[in-house]
Nucleic acid binder design. Sequence first.
DNA 1: TCTATTGTTCGATTATGATCGAACTTTAGA
DNA 2: TCTAAAGTTCGATCATAATCGAACAATAGA
Lengths: 114, 114
Amino acid sequence: MKILHHPDRADIHLSSVLYALSDPVRLFILSELRKHQERSCGDFDVPVAKSTLSHHTRTLRESGVVNVRSLGTQRLISIRTDDLEIRFPGLLTSILDAYENSDEKQQMLLGLEQ
Amino acid sequence: MKILHHPDRADIHLSSVLYALSDPVRLFILSELRKHQERSCGDFDVPVAKSTLSHHTRTLRESGVVNVRSLGTQRLISIRTDDLEIRFPGLLTSILDAYENSDEKQQMLLGLEQ
DNA sequence: TCTATTGTTCGATTATGATCGAACTTTAGA
DNA sequence: TCTAAAGTTCGATCATAATCGAACAATAGA
């Protein structure tokens, strides 16, 4: 089984986290994760190909935003809440609250245009 | 004199703001603006060409993060604090606080690598 | 009016990344 | 042992953007 690299907490960089969260699909994934704690890739109802979704989860993992663990054939994804809170207090909450109060989710589901 | 387009408050999108703030040079500019209220382009001591700096300020303006006004030959830049606070409460503060407590500024000044 | 200052725009280059389908890997279960 | 399910990787394409220097525009001041 492949080893999935996760950066140490000290190696999580603000600009990388902000970049990871600047994509509508990845913002959607994060907001789903906040609601459901842990999800597999297949649980995300996003309008992209399987390989594209895999790319996005990798981006989130390598930036230090999420943890990924294997369970059978699945990959279970969760937010690195504690690490992020210690490193960047309040950041994730303000971003996801802002996301929930915006219409970015609808925009993404309706077509990804703009 | 050229008209500088600024998006309306309602047209400021979270993903665009996060993207604008995911660059080390632009994060540095924002942190300087928080300290000094209003600055001209020339005030920023960043290791990039003049045309590149102009590009960065444009990215910040078009994403809705900053306001730019002309004064003589200068362009005075300031953060759209009120608009951002209304649209995304607490977001900018948590991002800039995180930035100040990180070493991203040093990393940027030392070479932009990584 | 001439010149220096300040910043923008343009064209080119280079790098990154979002996307897809196809092929592959791993595991669970029949 | 097969097969189906769940993801990853690969190769290709396409778009965006970071960067620079050179040329340009606008303004202030001598």
